[in-house]
Amino acid sequence: MKQFVKILPVAALAVAPMAANADTIFGVFAGGQYWDGNVDGSISAFDPQVRLGNYDDQSEAFSSYYVAVEHPIPLIPNFKARWNDMTVDGEGINPESDFSHVDYILYYEIFDNDIISIDLGVNAKRFDGNSSYIVADAAVTPVEFSGTVPMAYAATKIGLPFTSWWINAEASAVSFDDSDIRDISASVEYQFLDNAAIDASVSLGYRDMEVKLDDIDDTYSDIRFSGPYLSVDVHF
C-alpha cells in the first residue's frame, strides 16, 4: 500500500488555517463505540487472484474508541485519533481477515457556535491488516497489507434549539486509480450531563465503510462494512 502515501486530496490541502475558529478553551474529548456491523463483499490476493474471503451480509461486532484535543491556537490544527477493531471471521479456506486500523485526523473548526459546528481537515487512515488462507487443508498462509491512506475529512454537528439533542455527521473519503475508500457516519446525540467540569452524551447512529483495493500489497478487495452503532462521549 505504498501508493497510498502519494495520494492526498487537493480539497484537503485547501483547508485554510486562517479561516478556522479555534476553541476559546483547551478541551479533551473521548469516547467509545459499539458497532453492530454487516460485512458484504470479498477479499483476494496475488495475481492470478486467490480468494481469501467471500462475505454475504455476515454479522460482526466491531468497536472503536477515540481521543481528541482542541485548543485556542488558530494556526495549529486540532487532533483526533480513533482506533477501530474490525476482525471478520472467515469461512472455507479463509480463517479470518483483519481490517483494524487507526484514524489520525488533523482538522480545523471553520465554524463553531452553540447551534452548529463544521470541521474540515485530513485523515491519515493507517491500516496494519492481514488475512490468510489454508493450503491443502493444513498450512495457514498469512497475507498482510499495510499502509497509510490520506483522506479528505469533514464533520458537522447541529444542535436542536432549546433541547439537549444534536444531529451529527462525519465523513472521510479518497479515490485514486481503481481503489476507493470511504468511511461515513451519521447519528442522533443526547447530552445527559452538562456542567463546568464535564459533558457527557450518548449517540445512536449508522456507519458505512467501504474498502476497494486494487493490487495494494498484492491485495484486492471490494468489501463493505455497515450497520447501526451506539456510542458514549465525554468532554473534559
Rank of each mutant, 00 (worst) to 15 (best):
2 K>M: 03
5 V>I: 12
13 L>F: 06
15 V>K: 09
20 A>W: 04
20 A>H: 03
26 F>P: 01
28 V>D: 00
33 Q>E: 15
35 W>H: 07
36 D>H: 01
37 G>S: 15
39 V>P: 00
42 S>W: 14
45 A>R: 00
50 V>W: 00
60 E>A: 15
68 A>W: 02
70 E>W: 06
71 H>L: 05
80 K>M: 14
80 K>L: 14
81 A>E: 11
86 M>D: 00
87 T>H: 01
89 D>E: 15
92 G>P: 06
94 N>W: 08
96 E>F: 02
97 S>V: 12
98 D>S: 04
108 Y>F: 09
108 Y>E: 01
108 Y>C: 00
111 F>G: 05
114 D>Y: 07
118 I>G: 07
119 D>Y: 09
121 G>F: 03
122 V>Y: 08
130 N>R: 15
140 V>Q: 14
141 T>D: 07
145 F>N: 01
152 A>P: 01
156 T>F: 12
162 F>Y: 14
169 A>G: 15
171 A>W: 10
172 S>L: 06
180 D>W: 04
181 I>C: 08
184 I>D: 08
185 S>A: 09
189 E>Y: 03
189 E>F: 04
190 Y>T: 03
191 Q>C: 12
193 L>C: 11
205 G>V: 06
208 D>G: 03
210 E>D: 10
216 I>H: 11
220 Y>T: 06
224 R>Y: 00
224 R>L: 04
